[in-house]
Simulated assay, not measured.
Amino acid sequence: MEINRKKFQGVLNILSFNRHFYIYGLSVLILITLSYVVFQWSTTLYWLIVAAFGYGLLMPLIVSAYVYDFSGYYKFEWINTLNFSDSKSKQIININAGFDETSFILKNHFPISNLKVFDFYHAEQHTEPAIVRARKVSLVYPNTQQIKSGLIPLKDNSIDAIFLLSAAHEIRSHKEKVMFLKECHRVCKPDGTVIMVEHLRDFPNFLAFSIGFTHFFSKTTWKKAYKNAGFSTFSENKFTPFMSVFSSKP
């Protein structure tokens, strides 16, 4: 199945799934404006507040448009730097957190490899409103299997590549992260690879998402989780200043 992404689909997804933040933000800005009109407080302070709100509401959309709509992320050309070849003998899994925009694209990129898709979304644990909304419009790859983050139903040392594409950060606790990554380590072949793409809790993403950058985790946190899970390597390639591609081997 060929996936043709609509123009600005990435930024429209962000706006749709996180619309509660924009509703709250605009509501507060309206109240501030009414207060300014009624009480006629400092014009300079008012415009500083408006500028701050404008930045906080618009910058995430601008960066999201850059990352998801103009950087070529969904063309998956960045995978070529990982030297992963397509082969009938290759076993690939893609694990998502309830919203899957990548499995059909992965299959198009590796048409003869064997691809299985898993979804670790759990309604009681993963309660972000954005995920709930995203699931309603997500395409479901055929035979996608619902799993728990602590159990991947595959044999030991059976998988050549595991893709975790903007999904693993939905596992919020460090303990659960390590448990999940231990499962990835278990099913991965000795020469296999776990490929994770994530925003980080770092300065560029702070500039992009302000307080929203706390939804992501730092490189140090991820490195510790992979080490605790038993992985021997943890390398990073930057895909735009706001997105990192991590590659790890058992």
Rank of each mutant, 00 (worst) to 15 (best):
N205S: 15
L61F: 00
D119L: 00
K136A: 01
K136C: 01
E176G: 05
M59V: 11
T221V: 09
S158M: 08
Y121A: 04
W78L: 04
T233M: 03
K7C: 08
N80D: 14
C188P: 04
E170T: 01
I49T: 05
M196Q: 07
V132Q: 10
E183G: 08
I171P: 04
S149V: 12
L151C: 07
S103E: 09
M196H: 12
L31E: 12
F110P: 00
D119V: 00
A225R: 01
L45K: 11
L34D: 03
K177E: 07
Y46I: 04
N13M: 12
S138Y: 10
D119R: 06
R135T: 03
S247F: 01
E198M: 01
F104H: 14
G10Y: 05
K88N: 13
A52Q: 15
F203E: 11
S85T: 15
L61Y: 00
P204I: 07
I162S: 00
D202V: 02
K175W: 05
F180D: 02
Y68L: 12
P142R: 11
D191I: 01
F213Q: 09
L154K: 15
A130W: 00
T220N: 08
Q91L: 12
P241D: 12
E2I: 12
S71T: 05
R135I: 00
L31H: 02
N143G: 10
T240G: 12
S218Y: 09
A130D: 11
L200T: 03
L154D: 12
L115F: 08
E170H: 14
W41K: 13
F110S: 02
K177A: 02
L139P: 03
P190R: 01
F84S: 03
S244H: 11
V140W: 04
I171F: 07
S87P: 02
F231G: 06
K116I: 01
N114A: 06
H199Y: 10
I152A: 15
L200D: 01
K182A: 07
V11E: 00
S247M: 07
K238H: 13
S166W: 04
L15M: 12
F104P: 07
Q91Y: 14
A65G: 08
L57H: 05
K116W: 07
P204E: 09
S218M: 06
Y121S: 01
K116P: 05
E176I: 06
N157K: 14
N94P: 09
